[in-house]
Design a protein around this nucleic acid. Structure first.
Lengths: 338, 338
DNA sequence: CTGAAAGCGCTTACAG
DNA sequence: CTGAAAGCGCTTACAG
């Protein structure tokens, strides 16, 4: 029973067919749940399959059928909880639709991303959902399309080409966050975090727009870029505190940098909410229980993931659909940090 | 060029062979980098392949060769940064070894886990690394082995069976953490977080062992279980503060619950380090920049992932190896919370 | 309702 | 060094 299970060839549909006394076509049909086969035959086949420990060979089936039930998702940064939440929403929807989803991680590495995409293509995947690594060429969607693979890009736009997209209104979100700070009486407001990419551009635009709304002059020395991590946010806040004592408010690139900033504030004996007004962006789960709880802009990460899944599913069903776009409307959630 | 790329059949090695004026065997050989083929022939074949936009059909190759270069990893909780870090270590090593890795997420759902495993089996995957969902039967490794698929289990043990494993010495870790608190003069020390599973058992054992080391009586009312999340940790700490005013120290199930506890402390105007001594467990990246920075026990999540990869790679290379086990030694890292 | 036959795109002995 | 042939495990018209 367990000595050597591989000294005999794997059992195939022809073994099952023999055992059930039917042809292999019949076995194939019952495996696919065809209603061409009467219940008793199908029953007999299933029993035989179970008895023999038959395992469906999906590779063979897909080779023949030229289709796949697998969807690939390529993600850029697993360590950022924001992306993890997007992923959860995406995956849930996809498996509900009967697909099996395979994720892979680029770690913001373009070369690795290229390899992953190629691997997925060779694998004959049914569709791809991706959040492109920083620096991804705008031509990528066109390339993937030319491969004949349905694609949805998430979170980070890729130029103005025509591709399905699920993301957030970053500009409006930061604009609202900044306006909230202004409405609290702040005039000198820093922007903390982010180093490059379309998302940073959009968020900075929102920041500037809010300033303009209120006739506050933009001061470039108030934008401190940093890696979009806790560490980066920590460093940026320390720097801000040293260089600009008078600044008592900041909007952050994302929640992660805000968490770092919270930590830096704490290091100096300061507390957001009381001594400093701080806004995050994303509303990751964590932000409800940071110290103190973070005021932020909610872009519903899981929803963005789920919507990306919907778009992809529709695209797979109908390749000729016109370009689809889901833009999440941001909502301010005010907790204690501002 | 882009009208309809799929009105013609995909180009295959026979097309390439025709274009390069060789047989398809030759094409196959050069694709595999065989040195049987002279450089000029191989050059000619590659050019033809490039010109025709040939894509390797891995499914067909694997079907014939009965092998795979894909490894599946099944993970239980993407939202916990600890697992994300394990994953990063695991994946990095696997892709360095030339495998393509497909991850999938169970969300602690046994049924989903079963489906994923089955899908991977049907896919003919080369190996599986998994962190089993809570409640996974101890028989699982034996089952997977009977499928002929190399397996390594991570983080959570699965009974005493013989299976490759990479995880941490949870008991020793918590014991050290608790002893540290005791050495600071604390006698009444709470244990916060965790709801079930082998990891909780081991960590509780360590907690009790430290108490015993110091002749402190175990008081079951001091262990407050909760979901291993920020929210859970927050609730547990609030509860502790209400019910047991005298308790000024706690060791947490993991960093995530500790972060929640930090937040709860902050809500009450308390600060870990000054007003309360708090220890985490894991040393996730986040813990260096929480507010305040967390004292915790470092079990090197990325290393555990990378070691899991090594074990799996060895197992694939040699199925008859005796059982392998990597147990990460915990190290106290003292920051500000205790 | 079921069977015989062809074929998906590769790889791998086996000749030469 | 290269070609002809068989076969991996399925699915899918096509007959009957």
């Amino acid at each position: 029973m367990n000595k050597k299970s591989n000294d005999s060839r794997a059992t195939t549909i022809v073994d099952v067919a023999a055992a059930a006394n039917v042809s292999k076509s019949t076995v194939s049909l019952v495996l696919q749940g065809s209603d061409l086969i009467p219940a008793d035959t199908s029953e007999r086949v299933r029993e035989a399959a179970a008895k023999l420990g038959y395992v469906y060979n999906r590779r063979a089936a897909e080779l023949r059928r030229k289709s796949s039930n697998a969807i690939g998702v390529v993600i850029n940064d697993l360590r950022n909880p924001f992306f993890a939440e997007v992923l959860v929403g995406l995956e849930g929807k996809l498996v509900d639709a009967g697909y099996t989803v395979f994720m892979a991680h680029t770690n913001e590495n373009l070369e690795r991303q290229q390899k992953l995409l190629t691997a997925m293509r060779e694998q004959g995947i049914a569709g791809i959902a991706m959040c492109p690594a920083l620096g991804t060429p705008a031509s990528l969607p066109k390339t993937v399309k030319s491969w004949g693979i349905p694609l949805v890009v998430m979170i980070r736009t890729l130029g103005v080409g025509s591709y399905d997209f699920s993301g957030a209104d970053n500009s409006l979100g930061v604009r609202n966050a900044t306006n909230h700070l202004i409405s609290k009486g702040h005039q000198r407001i820093a922007f903390l975090g982010g180093v490059t990419g379309p998302v940073l551009q959009e968020r900075l635009e929102g920041y500037k727009a809010a300033l303009a709304d209120n006739d506050i002059e933009f001061d470039s020395s108030l934008v401190l870029t940093s890696q979009p991590t806790r560490e980066g946010g920590h460093a940026a806040m320390i720097h801000l505190l040293r260089a600009r004592e008078m600044v008592k408010a900041a909007v952050c690139y994302n929640d992660l940098t805000a968490f770092g900033a919270l930590s830096a504030l704490g290091d100096q004996g300061l507390r957001a909410g009381a001594d400093f007004a701080l806004m995050g962006f994303d509303n990751v789960l964590d932000s409800a229980h940071s110290n103190p709880p973070l005021s932020t802009v909610d872009v519903k990460p899981e929803t963005m993931g789920a919507e990306a899944a919907s778009l992809l599913l529709k695209r797979i069903k109908n390749p000729d659909l016109k370009v689809q776009r889901y833009i999440q409307l941001p909502e301010l959630v005010l907790r204690q940090s501002a």
